[in-house]
């Protein structure tokens, strides 16, 4: 369904959700490229309110594609955003969730647009943003510490996300992503299979706490400004309960270093850990963190091969699915070798 088809159906849907509004109109609908797990559009909605005033607001539509890079329930993503809205973790406000296909042909949600900030990494390593990378890095890992510190029950996520015992966090995640590799692998992966054998032979200690794990916390998944500020943490579709070190390990995945030689391309490793520990009140024990860093390589590879599989099977021929398969599989192998001290 393209913009021309979506626009009137979306306007009709919003009109149904805002019964006090009249003359609801959707315009300027633009697909935001780059999303491989959800299709994302930015659009403007205008309406006349109950007092006769004409109003407009920028919204975001996140809609499920035919086959995505990451298979998750959109309710998980929606509830994760809702749980953190108004907290020390900046996120956009969620407005409506639709889990059926009737309105727009597939499930979707609508959120407020946080406008005026950068999200992509293309601009990050050039002026004016390059001058404030250390501050941006400190904010990035401080916010991640805030996510780790959150009590899932108090913010309502314990009712939404499956529970896990502290000593089972690692095995649940490894079982899941090894299963994805088993089903979607397009060619044998000797480095990642060796990494999985090492992970199973050297399990980490039980999690210090079972917390909220964002699941894809990396440079490129937040809105930032030129002063080193962060205004929205995005892409919560892989959010789950687990060991908070999982997010820290994922954020250190070398494929997210953008050739800068430091985590996220932003901050020396020690400074990132210090910011996370200070905000979370948890400790990043080096051996446990190493386990989660290597796990991040396995998870990353599973996601990249899944994108190749979805494209090759014809379930989704969006060319965005080819990019990780071509550009990241070998890089992820190299990252695993580095974590294992083999490169």
């Amino acid at each position: 369904m393209d913009e021309a088809e979506l626009t009137p159906r979306l306007a009709a849907y919003i009109a149904g959700r805002m019964p006090e509004a009249r003359d609801v109109a959707v315009s300027d609908m633009n697909r935001i490229t780059g999303g491989a797990s959800r299709q994302t559009w930015r659009f403007t909605c205008a309406w006349t309110d109950g007092e006769g005033r004409r109003r407009s607001r920028g919204f975001i539509l996140r809609r499920d594609p035919a086959d995505s890079l990451i298979d998750t329930e959109r309710r998980v993503e929606f509830e994760a955003y809702r749980a953190f809205h108004g907290s020390a973790v900046p996120v956009p406000e969620m407005l409506w969730l639709e889990e059926g296909d009737e309105a727009l042909g597939s499930p979707f949600f609508v959120a407020e647009e946080i406008a005026g900030f950068q999200a992509g990494t293309g601009a990050l390593f050039a002026p004016p943003y390059v001058d404030t990378l250390p501050e941006l890095g400190r904010r990035k890992w401080t916010i991640l510490g805030e996510i780790a510190k959150a009590d899932p029950a108090r913010i309502g996520l314990a009712d939404v996300l499956p529970a896990v015992a502290p000593d089972a966090c690692w095995s649940r995640e490894l079982d899941h992503w090894e299963g994805v590799l088993d089903s979607d692998e397009t060619e044998p992966l000797p480095i990642i299979r060796a990494a999985i054998r090492w992970l199973r032979a050297n399990p980490p200690p039980p999690a210090q706490k079972v917390g909220v794990v964002h699941g894809d916390y990396r440079t490129g998944n937040f809105l930032y400004d030129a002063a080193g500020g962060i205004h929205g943490i995005l892409d919560w579709e892989m959010c789950h309960l687990g060991d908070p070190l999982e997010d820290l390990g994922w954020s250190f995945n070398p494929v997210w270093s953008f050739g800068q030689g430091k985590p996220g391309g932003l901050l020396p490793r020690e400074a990132a850990i210090a910011a996370w520990e200070a905000a979370s009140g948890l400790r990043a024990e080096p051996q446990a963190l190493k386990w989660w860093e290597l796990f991040a390589c396995v998870k990353g590879q599973a996601i990249w091969v899944s994108s190749a599989r979805a494209w090759m099977d014809g379930a989704n021929r969006d060319p965005i699915l080819v990019y990780p398969a071509w550009a990241l599989i070998n890089a992820q192998d190299r990252a695993a070798l580095k974590v294992m001290g083999r490169l």
Binding site: I191, P254, V255, G259, A327, N330, A331, R334, K338, R342
Partner: peptide, 20 residues
Amino acid sequence: RVWDELARSTERRKLSGSPC
């Protein structure tokens, strides 16, 4: 020697814009 070859294979396949 297996590990050496695995490392060499990633060097052969490394692209110019590879993140690592």
